[in-house]
Design a protein around this nucleic acid. Sequence first.
DNA 1: ACTCTAGGTGTACGGCGTACACTCGTCAAG
DNA 2: CTTGACGAGTGTACGCCGTACACCTAGAGT
Lengths: 227, 227
Amino acid sequence: MTRQEATHTQRIPLNRDRVLRAAVALADATGIDALSMRRLAQELDVVPMALYKHVANKEELLDGMADAVVGEIDPPAAGPDWRRVVRGRILSARRVLLRHPWAARVIESRTGPTPAVLAYLDTMAGSFREGGLSADLTHHVMHAMGSRLLGFSQELFDTSGPSGPPDPALAARYPHIAELAATAAHDGGSTVGGGCDDQFEFEFALDLLLDGFETLRRQGWTSERKA
Amino acid sequence: MTRQEATHTQRIPLNRDRVLRAAVALADATGIDALSMRRLAQELDVVPMALYKHVANKEELLDGMADAVVGEIDPPAAGPDWRRVVRGRILSARRVLLRHPWAARVIESRTGPTPAVLAYLDTMAGSFREGGLSADLTHHVMHAMGSRLLGFSQELFDTSGPSGPPDPALAARYPHIAELAATAAHDGGSTVGGGCDDQFEFEFALDLLLDGFETLRRQGWTSERKA
DNA sequence: ACTCTAGGTGTACGGCGTACACTCGTCAAG
DNA sequence: CTTGACGAGTGTACGCCGTACACCTAGAGT
């Protein structure tokens, strides 16, 4: 403590958690494409190679980031109606994913499930089972939900955009799309999907699926395929 | 024609189409991660910068590849049952995407819809409309299908893998997942999702959605939200 | 006092996308 | 036949990336 105590506050030593948090913050702020090991190191006032004492490589960094985000999802609420329980939790996941727009792509790009994702899926499966769905049906149901389980509906293209006036040439080439765009006539029509209420679309599909599952459950549905 | 006519067949000049086809073939063969401008140029016996006379940059190359793949999807068959028409076309899309496993990720990563994708979605919307769904319902229905429209069910994690014996420690930590895995007991049980019949899962969700849509159509469903 | 070690450093390598200036063959206009 | 424009392919170079590897250093345990 003899010298250089005031020039800059002495460093808190790095650790895996600080690295992951900084990475998430950086991705939130500048987008996932701008997240490089070098840029992240710079954000932490450290030389790039220092990061490798805490994460094995960039893939593992991304694994950790995915887990951190999934860990933000609320646990399932208690309740007698399994559809409400599942619906609420998925909407919580959706809120988390909207806070971290890069996360959907990162989660998808993981080659294997990370621990937090496994834990999430496990309790989700538990909610279905507790609601009375057979293990068999639960299995197919979770596949059917796909990435919607984690709150992203996989919107093919981001619905934001310049949203100029409808292009008549485009409308001529793609008449049906133009018709749909015209139908979504609220706060500024746009070309293909702009002006849609994403939340509504998400819940529309979610409820359609949950209702379908409930119908199958009541019917005692089973996959009677043999081998 | 005086010299070097036999050393190597004289070059067919490059063009955009040859570049795209080579890129698709290279991605098919070696994976999308191994597709670099330099590697592609090498495959075409050309210096890397030569490619830039035919595509503006790598993003545009990927756009072109996505379009080439989407162009492989069959046009809709004719028929009175809209569900059969849509179902058949989507399964065609799925076959295409299975031929080009990298394509789903590439299509997702496009920031805007490419012409072939627009054309595909347009005729798909046409099939719904012709089946008697309102423009309103068609709109939401297409959102609900999400990427399934293009044949990929977004399987969160690839179902292939080492597929070792079920890990008892994992089973203890994730009991519900273990139960589901045990249920999918055919040709070799695996840890989380292995051993599933992907095609079955895809069609399960597809048919659940299509049946739900048909029910809504018969009910004259409309989104009566105001503003 | 000595060693061990965890964490941070510095240098370097190979690969990437691509900007920019160039060469060269073809072909139409003069 | 000359010439000049032009489109296709070339060569060099820059800045970024992830990360291997050797090194240093401060503090803890003996």
